[in-house]
């Protein structure tokens, strides 16, 4: 099996699986939130705040955040590996790609810590 130094799990096949599993988690979460917005068009603070006080919502949001990290890392890695390359950008291709991926890691870590803080500090 081909392995690579910078992708998520060092194997394309399990990356593929993790991206699908995390897509399902994110999809379910998006459906739940979408349903909340559609079913109560004039959402009030009390209702909204109560929803995020519930333990199931806290756990659900945390799981969605974890899925987001895995999913978007694999996704951004795939995109960067397709376009930010030597064949597109010449000899700076590799450093461009690695800088971009480093930036993505920072964004993902910020999302994770910040999101957990929002969810669990209430």
């Amino acid at each position: 099996m081909v392995s690579s130094a910078t992708n998520f799990s060092r194997s394309g096949l399990s990356d593929w699986l993790i991206q699908r599993a995390s897509a399902v988690v994110l999809g379910l979460y998006v459906l739940v939130l979408g349903w909340v917005f559609v079913s109560s068009p004039s959402l009030e603070f009390a209702e909204w705040s109560l929803l995020f006080d519930g333990l199931s919502m806290k756990i659900g949001t945390s799981l969605a955040l974890l899925a987001l990290c895995a999913h978007s890392w694999i996704g951004m890695w795939t995109v960067a590996t397709d376009y930010l390359t030597k064949s597109h950008f010449g000899r700076h291709g590799t450093s461009l790609r690695l800088s971009f991926l480093g930036f993505c890691i920072i964004v993902i870590l910020v999302y994770l810590v910040w999101g957990f803080q929002i969810v669990w500090s209430k």
């Binding site: 978007s72 951004m76 993505c104």
Partner: peptide, 11 residues
């Protein structure tokens, strides 16, 4: 890719 950066706004 767009949603990836949009998540910041949503958070």
């Amino acid at each position: 890719v767009g949603v990836f950066f949009g998540i910041g706004v949503l958070l």
